[in-house]
Design a protein around this nucleic acid. Structure first.
Lengths: 348, 348
DNA sequence: TATTAGCACTCACTTATGTCGAGTGCTAAT
DNA sequence: ATTAGCACTCGACATAAGTGAGTGCTAATA
């Protein structure tokens, strides 16, 4: 029993129909709707074979067939034809990009919103992260007479701040001096590389300010820890409720539960980071609680090794080709915006 | 027909029972469960009166009664007895606070999570905002050979950054000089107070750097605009799905829709800011799409005039007294953390 | 030999019907 | 003023019958 052309045609028909209607599809429907030139009886025989091979299954005896995860996998890998973006979608993507976005979290928020609106699935997206764990530059600034501002620029040009409270604030010059010293010693280092040796070196150099060093080091630690945390933005969670596969409130609730745990999403996105495009269908997904969903992730780059990931979650019966095309379009857009942000607007 | 003691007892019984069971409560239930020393027939007569007065209503003829918004209002204003926090709740609140939280958005996130966990309702919380629109201090720092970092401290000691890209970066000293000038002119001003006069004054003082001023001003504008946007964090949206009043997927979906629009939430929280505690019951709520919900908001302060608001949304049949006690406890906790943050840990 | 028409059978879904129980309002007795 | 009693209402639930989309199998056909 081989997967001949006709079987593939039938499988394709089943998948297309099921993606559209969410109803198990029967032999007669296929015979009528898709002109394959064969009768429903023949289709029935072929479907029986397809089921035996594991590409489709029956929710219950004497019902139509639905694609299995394996069926979707075949579809995604070999059958699906790539859709091009429609003009109105293209226009919409443009309109997102055209606005003046310069705050990274705002860009993330808007992107997620746009994607969930376009696809009607749930979107999440992680900020671009690269050399974020390395210290590029440190500064100390006097803020008022009890506060010193610690500014740390990380390797991927993200900025983190921390206000340090002190009983008395050293002069601007002294702070500058301390800052320069910190810079000399810590530049290029990650948090976990700041060990005893490094600290005692700083203590040596900053003997005159020995009482200032501990709070500053503490602040650096806190700040770098925060910097290492990857932010993730989500949008369109409500879309889940529109799908018949989640009309059971319990199912919807448990998926929501999963989506509310940011750690899970971060892990998921981080794991996908090495692939430009990754499709996880149903049980292929390692996240418990998403076994009934498919997740499509796409990675966007921002020069060097700085990258972030977008994920779209939907029922396994999702419109893979549409999501992929929208995702590709969006990745291009984001990369364009980020390029503008990092070197396009020099001094103008 | 007056609202005598007995009627109030009955109303209270109805409300308590309905909050607990979500089922319309009948006269016989009350007679059996609450020992009021009167028969179900008498209760029936009183209930008929209470309905006429508008405190309760019948979902359909020949069913039990449920409280009306007006009934809840009476309950909240006069009948409800304030609950004290249980020991395990108190402990839980302590455990949230005891952790070392120094990043404001992390504090918000954790607070929201804790509240939604404790109450089983949906929580949202806005960051503390005060003199955020006023510039307290401006600095310019060289970052690398194409980037200058703009640091703005706002009146309420929040820090905003913006990376400005330039073809060539002036020396440290020059940037310092420019920064000081900006400081002199802009300190204490809000974005909308930077008018033509102010700008030309800066142009005068910074003649030598005339080509640098426009991008810097642009960056200041963008940064201050971002600073004015109030961040709001939400948690526990999924809890909505557990309530029978939202077992209709459509209803749940439309509430989700509302909750996903951050602007709506921000407005809601901002409007409540002048009250320490505010309770909006069902139709009292001005937000369309929340007419079937009650919203309890509490405001926390952080010295001066800096304050933020916490909101908890649930069905009108929510456990008002529990939410209020948890909310009060949490406000105290947050204020403690914020106090520590702003002056408790001076130089230690 | 592959295909197809025909047929019996399955099973979810819908509709109709009856029963149950919690609840009400009214009336007459206490 | 209160209460017991009674007729009535109406949603919830269970049962039964009918419908339709679907299947698998068999025998006839190209």
């Amino acid at each position: 029993m081989s997967l001949n052309d006709r079987k593939i045609q039938i499988l394709q028909a089943i998948i297309n129909d099921y993606i559209e209607t969410a109803e198990p599809v029967g032999s007669r429907t296929i015979a009528k709707k898709y002109n394959l030139g064969i009768s429903s009886a023949t289709i029935r025989n072929e479907m029986s074979d397809l089921e035996e091979m594991g590409f489709i299954l029956q929710p219950h005896a004497s019902s139509g067939r639905i694609p299995s995860d394996m069926g979707y996998r075949l579809y995604v890998d070999h059958l699906m034809q790539k859709k091009e973006l429609g003009p109105e979608e293209q226009k919409y993507l443009q309109s997102i990009i055209s606005r003046d976005i310069s705050q990274i979290d705002y860009l993330m928020e808007e992107t997620a919103k746009a994607l969930s609106l376009l696809t009607n699935y749930t979107t999440f997206i992680s900020e671009p992260v690269g050399q974020r764990t390395r210290i590029k530059q440190i500064r100390l600034l006097p803020l008022d007479n009890v506060s010193v501002l610690l500014v740390i620029a990380t390797g991927d040009n993200f900025i983190k701040n921390h206000v340090i409270k002190m009983h008395s604030v050293p002069s601007d010059e002294k702070l500058f001096e301390i800052g320069m010293c910190l810079n000399r010693v810590l530049q290029g280092r990650a948090l976990q590389e700041i060990d005893g040796a490094v600290i005692s070196k700083m203590q040596m150099e900053l003997q005159d300010y020995s009482e200032l060093l501990p709070p500053i080091l503490k602040a650096i630690e806190i700040t770098m820890q925060a910097a290492e945390k990857v932010q993730v933005h989500m949008s369109g969670a409500k879309n889940i409720l529109a799908f018949p596969e989640f009309s059971d409130i319990q199912k919807a609730k448990s998926l929501f539960q999963t989506l509310e745990e940011k750690d899970v999403l971060v892990t998921l996105l981080e794991e996908s980071k090495s692939n430009d495009l990754q499709i996880l269908i149903g049980s292929e997904n390692s996240v418990q609680g998403m076994k009934d969903c498919s997740v499509i992730t796409a990675t966007y780059k921002m020069g060097d090794n700085t990258r972030g990931t977008i994920g779209i979650v939907g029922p396994t019966r999702m419109d893979y080709s549409q999501v992929i095309s929208v995702l590709n379009g969006m990745v291009q857009n984001i990369e364009k915006v980020l390029r503008n942000l990092s070197d396009g607007n020099k001094n103008t």
